[in-house]
Design a protein around this nucleic acid. Structure first.
Lengths: 170, 170
DNA sequence: ACTGTACATTCCAGTATTGACATGTCACTA
DNA sequence: TAGTGACATGTCAATACTGGAATGTACAGT
């Protein structure tokens, strides 16, 4: 159900088309809630159907600009304040670690070394993102930056952990 | 596709019934790849259909014990060595942070304070889990412990971050 | 005038996941 | 012996997600 709220959240900042939202997902939200193009367009149609958002303008190439309605804003606030976040986080990466025992120690170490590289790469990407973003925006800018910091800390933590774990195999 | 491999991984340690696997998911795997009962039984049937696992014994109450076949083991190894883990991690919790701007600073701070508590709680739960597990087992024990350590570090990191973020709002 | 690229949307089949409901057995104990 | 709780599986409808195909428009540069 979070995709719905992710869209409401983005639209709370400013009106946007499906295409705009897709780009926003690719940059800012990709690291916390990835979504595909088909999913976004489908959900926008549903959201418009239930009145949480509305088409406020039409542009070239069939562009439809959506904006949050009062009901949509109410739903967004309700989600943020009245519902508890899910504790469960799925991690393919960590799931694999459980079963490294079926591989040789060398292979297991190799996997963990890969995680180190991957975390480094992710950190670098986030830093690139940080530089590329126009930080003059509204609320999303302040809180988006917070999430970015989280990403950096998270990857640093994972890097250290993978290093530690790889050393442990010896 | 990871549930399939999670099951293969657990069965690589020892044969087990759907019920056993369900319990294993509830404890060890709940934090990296949650799965429901219906999903597990459905997947076991499919896996048995494709020959990656096989029923090796039947017990009371219709209990069916599954074991990994050679093909299943090959598939598990293939997954671990030949396929890249997904970088994307969905986090409801962090998604919300993006949109805290629609709330008052007090409410936003409240949410972050909740994350601090939640992380503390998670740490405590993991420590409880650590004490309750029989660490004399095979491979799963070694690598399961690694994942547990990851959980502890992860929650500690998140705690610090949430604290930092809450302070930032002032 | 042509061409490539970015813009922009819709639809679909297949798979994964959720959250029930339904059914029955076995062991223990009050 | 009646009841409870743990054991054990199967099924279903609804929703979420993936990955791709199909279609077409506007614009900038050559």
């Amino acid at each position: 159900m979070s995709l719905r709220h992710a869209l409401l959240g983005l639209l709370s900042e400013r009106p946007a088309s499906g295409y705009d939202l897709l780009k926003l997902f690719e940059t800012s939200l990709a690291n916390v809630w990835p979504a595909t193009q088909s999913q976004i367009y489908t959900e926008l149609t549903k959201l418009a159907g239930t009145g949480l958002i509305a088409v406020t303008a039409e542009g070239p190439r069939g562009r439809k600009e959506y904006a949050l309605t009062d009901e949509g804003m109410a739903e967004l606030r309700h989600w943020l304040t009245e519902t508890r976040p899910q504790r469960a986080v799925r991690s393919d990466m960590m799931l694999r670690v459980f079963f490294l025992g079926v591989l040789s120690p060398e292979q297991a170490r190799g996997y963990l070394a890969e995680l180190v590289d991957l975390s480094d790469q992710a950190c670098e990407d986030l830093r690139g993102l940080m530089d590329s973003i126009d930080w003059e925006d509204g609320n999303l800018s302040v809180y988006g930056r917070m999430v970015l910091e989280y990403g950096l800390r998270f990857n640093a933590m994972r890097r250290e952990w993978a290093q530690w774990a790889a050393d442990l195999i010896d």
